[in-house]
Simulated assay, not measured.
Amino acid sequence: MLLAVLAAWVVAAVLTVVGWSVAGGERQPDDLWLLVVLLVIPGVIGLAVARGIGRWTASRRRDRAGS
């Protein structure tokens, strides 16, 4: 699941960067850092959620195996 989230984020990031570079003119953010932050934050959140779900699922499996 973690790899699926990472792959989806990479595809979204590439599409965003391509769209940003093609848009040109007024649609470009004034600061490249804004673009980087807007790409990194959702990726980090998605990876954290995927990791949390993975740990939760693993702990449930351990609990079921122990009972």
Score class of each variant (00 low, 15 high):
15 L>I: 09
1 M>K: 14
35 L>E: 01
31 D>R: 15
34 L>S: 15
52 G>M: 03
43 G>H: 11
20 W>I: 06
62 R>N: 02
47 L>R: 01
57 T>G: 04
40 V>A: 15
65 A>F: 04
11 V>I: 14
1 M>H: 13
29 P>A: 08
53 I>Y: 13
49 V>E: 02
20 W>M: 08
29 P>H: 04
9 W>P: 00
64 R>S: 01
42 P>D: 12
11 V>W: 09
32 L>C: 06
14 V>W: 10
23 A>E: 05
51 R>Q: 14
51 R>W: 11
44 V>H: 07
66 G>S: 13
36 V>D: 02
53 I>C: 15
33 W>K: 11
51 R>C: 13
41 I>Y: 09
21 S>A: 00
61 R>S: 04
40 V>K: 13
49 V>W: 05
30 D>W: 09
1 M>I: 06
66 G>T: 11
67 S>C: 08
61 R>I: 06
21 S>M: 05
3 L>P: 07
18 V>I: 12
48 A>Q: 07
3 L>A: 11
16 T>C: 14
30 D>V: 06
10 V>F: 15
64 R>V: 02
5 V>F: 06
25 G>H: 02
57 T>Y: 09
39 L>W: 04
22 V>R: 01
41 I>A: 15
41 I>R: 14
18 V>N: 00
16 T>Y: 10
36 V>A: 13
51 R>Y: 11
15 L>F: 14
36 V>M: 04
38 L>M: 14
32 L>A: 13
1 M>N: 13
17 V>T: 08
50 A>K: 03
55 R>A: 12
30 D>S: 08
10 V>Y: 13
67 S>I: 10
20 W>E: 06
8 A>D: 09
56 W>Y: 07
5 V>I: 14
27 R>L: 03
3 L>W: 04
16 T>H: 07
37 V>L: 07
9 W>M: 04
23 A>P: 00
34 L>K: 11
7 A>I: 14
9 W>L: 06
34 L>I: 14
62 R>P: 01
9 W>I: 02
16 T>I: 10
31 D>P: 03
37 V>Y: 04
29 P>S: 04
3 L>D: 08
45 I>A: 15
33 W>I: 15
30 D>F: 10
20 W>D: 02
16 T>M: 11
43 G>I: 15
22 V>S: 01
36 V>Q: 04
66 G>C: 09
1 M>R: 14
13 A>S: 10
19 G>M: 00
39 L>Q: 08
15 L>H: 10
14 V>L: 12
28 Q>E: 05
6 L>Q: 00
66 G>P: 04
65 A>C: 04
28 Q>N: 03
23 A>K: 05
42 P>A: 12
18 V>C: 04
25 G>Y: 03
63 D>A: 15
6 L>H: 03
14 V>C: 11
34 L>M: 11
27 R>T: 03
17 V>D: 02
9 W>Y: 12
51 R>E: 15
66 G>Y: 08
47 L>N: 07
23 A>Y: 04
66 G>I: 09
59 S>L: 08
22 V>W: 01
46 G>F: 05
52 G>S: 00
33 W>C: 09
56 W>K: 06
2 L>E: 01
8 A>M: 13
4 A>L: 12
2 L>P: 05
41 I>W: 11
9 W>S: 03
17 V>M: 09
25 G>W: 00
54 G>S: 05
55 R>V: 14
55 R>D: 09
30 D>R: 10
8 A>W: 11
35 L>R: 00
